[in-house]
């Protein structure tokens, strides 16, 4: 192997094969994947994100939340994401169509914190729904809500201001200094709106047919979720 031109040609062909085989083929096969139009509901799924939630996604990105949180619910057989005796992180596994409206897909690679793909459809640790107020309290001081949490506090997304008149309706229920209240900044409001918009509950045709779970009892549990 002493001829440089053949070496260069070989390297070029191998890279081209990898590019065509993996990047180009995927772009061609599902790069123009479109929404699913549900004629009964008269809507195209996935639904577009509301304005504030779209801004919140930028806050999510800018604070690097993706370093610790994934946004993909894996099918049965992978961890305990879905199905019976699972953490109930989703009602079904995530599919490619869930992400087609997103300019930046943030699948993530670490679960230092829980998966957030279906966050808004889940319950709190104490069984209640997630609300803006509960999320503000958690973001402001996570360890005050869940003692074991290793999430950093996002107190800089809030501002402490003197109470004027009746005080802000959005103020956090905290034992703040007398005459002061803690209110979320616009960025915190956007982030919380985004977190509350994370909901993949619509069942596409492909979520019913394509990924057939291996065990028969798993099929049953999927049917029950429809």
């Amino acid at each position: 192997m002493n001829r440089a031109p053949y070496l260069f040609l070989g390297i070029f062909l191998a890279l081209a094969l990898s590019f065509v085989g993996l990047v180009l083929s995927n772009q061609i096969s599902y790069g123009d994947f479109s929404t699913h139009i549900d004629e009964d509901e008269g809507k195209a799924f996935p639904l577009p994100a509301a304005g504030l939630a779209a801004q919140g996604k930028l806050v999510y990105q800018d604070l690097g939340c993706v370093s610790c949180h994934t946004q993909q619910v894996r099918r049965e057989g992978f961890g305990s994401d879905v199905g019976e005796k699972s953490r109930g992180w989703g009602e079904r596994q995530s599919v490619a169509r869930d992400y087609i409206r997103e300019t930046h897909v943030l699948l993530g690679s670490q679960r230092v914190g829980p998966d957030l793909r279906n966050f808004a459809a889940r319950k709190n640790a104490n069984g209640t729904d997630h609300t803006a107020a509960s999320l503000y309290a958690y973001l402001y001081h996570p360890q005050a809500v869940v003692k074991e949490s290793n999430m950093p506090a996002y107190a800089y997304l809030f501002k402490t201001q003197p109470i004027i008149g009746q005080g802000s309706a959005k103020a956090l229920k905290l034992p703040a200094a007398l005459g002061y209240e803690v209110v979320p900044s616009p960025r915190a409001e956007a982030l919380v709106a985004y977190l509350l918009s994370l909901k993949d509950t619509y069942a596409y045709p492909e979520t019913k047919n394509v990924y057939t779970p291996p065990a028969p009892k798993a099929v049953k549990s999927k049917e029950s979720h429809k």
């Binding site: 993706v66 610790c68 290793n150 950093p152 506090a153």
Partner: peptide
Amino acid sequence: WQLHTPAFFNACEYVTYGRIQP
């Protein structure tokens, strides 16, 4: 350090784990 002591360097957003790590 932030991974096991979340209160380490969390006073401002420039040093939050989500930015330091990348």
